[in-house]
Design a protein around this nucleic acid. Structure first.
Lengths: 251, 251
DNA sequence: CGTATTGTTGACGCGGCTCAAATGGAGTGG
DNA sequence: CCACTCCATTTGAGCCGCGTCAACAATACG
């Protein structure tokens, strides 16, 4: 767990501060780190040539377009993103949210285009791992693919759960499970899972969960009145996680 | 597209008839075939040592249990399966249906357990590809993994679509899209996409789509009365695909 | 400070769930 | 072949969750 046997990331740039921005995910907590940690040092040096670190992305800026040709995966370093498809002319359908430490675009591997768009919901920064030189890894490519498979499997699991959630649960259960999911993800990447920012609009939450904005708003008020959580602006605090779990029927 | 450059499958057993059962998928149309077709002949001979072909599975029999340890993937040769998780004590949640030519269990790769159960909805047969000797493939393992990734990506795409479908569409749109999806899948694997069996119970369809059985029943009657399709027993015939597409809002 | 965007609240209607009961069909044993 | 059972399907009645519409408040932003 000591990161000293790995090249790159924060340590690569000696002049870099330890923690320049408290809202930034630590490299050791980033999924990109887990992605690469099976490589030997020599490979990592090669990979680091291609790894672009901390690209700033302005709020509302498009990370990639649905029609953009696949050029690698991104890791959210700070800020947050949403992905959506435009299939329906009536508006966008939000596919997912991406918090610091999470990867975007992996499911477009082996496709010519990304197939969906990703935009920053706030001022953000990403690391970018281009995939074009992957074949240079030679025999080690298999390790790399194993990580890809591992993460894709995770996503399949999550999507199954999401389908179940959106299809068969009440609005209250969906929103509760959604908040718990956010909490768990923040916690996993080294943030406080009990108190965090809700970077997305209520409109986006509603869209994602297949609900109306008004229902989301009313439910949040209900949760507040039950003392389950508190909201001020975009800051959320979960006061009673057990109660929230029982609401979401995830005991 | 001539299958003669590949070893194994039907051709391997010289005494085997061409088409002993018209309800059986042709090997050239099976996803397992696509899965293996990138291998050289020598590798395929090795793989075929492990490939168990045409294992019969009785109606209602469990192919694998949620707690069974992962032992490889199955290809449906004839019949059909449903997969489901038992998370909810109130009953099963159906995750998917598997028709002849389709693969079951791939998303459990790199897990200790399957994580969900699969049972035969009718008298069926499968081919089984154990994964335990995959490392024997050596450098060619990478090709294999590439296929795994390709199929997992397909599944992620499908699951996203499913989430969207189940979350934001009316009951009519969901059922229409479901039937069209079945039609497309039967067609893709060499069957008649306009007239096929509905192997699952209406109860299962309802569960899968997040609807009640009664709603599914009423909607099917509506489709029949509109002349969109005809049903006798479990046999379904799509009389007006364009109308069904417009109902499903997939033009 | 003004404008645009997001969030809040109420009234109302309907899609689809629930409950309940009847009908049909497949399998089984006599 | 029939009688019986079990399960699936069908149909109806009633109700409620949540979407829609509309008006207004609050917040963000230039």
């Amino acid at each position: 767990m000591n990161g000293s046997n790995h090249v790159g990331f924060n340590q690569a740039d000696g002049s870099e501060e330890e923690c320049p921005d408290s809202h930034e995910v630590a490299c050791a907590q980033c999924k990109l780190h887990g992605f690469l940690k099976f490589f030997e040092e020599s490979d990592l040096i090669a990979l680091n040539i291609f790894l672009s670190r901390r690209i700033p992305v302005a709020k509302g800026a498009i990370l990639f377009d649905a029609l953009a040709s696949f050029r690698g995966i991104y890791a959210v370093k700070s800020g947050s993103f949403k992905s959506f498809s435009q299939l329906d002319p009536s508006g966008e359908q939000i596919q997912g949210f991406f918090l610091p430490g999470e990867l975007i675009g992996l499911d477009s591997i082996h496709s010519s285009h990304y197939g969906y768009s990703a935009v920053a919901m706030e001022t953000s920064s990403v690391c970018w791992l281009p995939f074009e030189h992957l074949d240079d890894l030679g025999e080690r490519k298999s390790f790399f693919q194993e990580q890809v498979i591992r993460i894709l499997v995770d996503q399949v699991r999550h999507d199954h759960h999401q389908t179940l959630l959106v299809g068969r649960r009440t609005a209250e259960e969906r929103l509760g499970a959604f908040l718990l999911n956010l909490s768990e993800r923040y916690g996993r990447h080294g943030f406080n899972g009990e108190a965090f920012r809700l970077p997305m609009l209520q409109n986006d939450i509603a869209n994602y969960l297949g609900l109306s904005m008004e229902t989301v708003c009313r439910l949040l008020r209900g949760f507040r009145e039950q003392g389950v959580l508190s909201i001020q602006g975009k800051r959320l605090r979960i006061l009673n996680p057990d109660c929230l779990r029982s609401i979401a029927h995830l005991c």
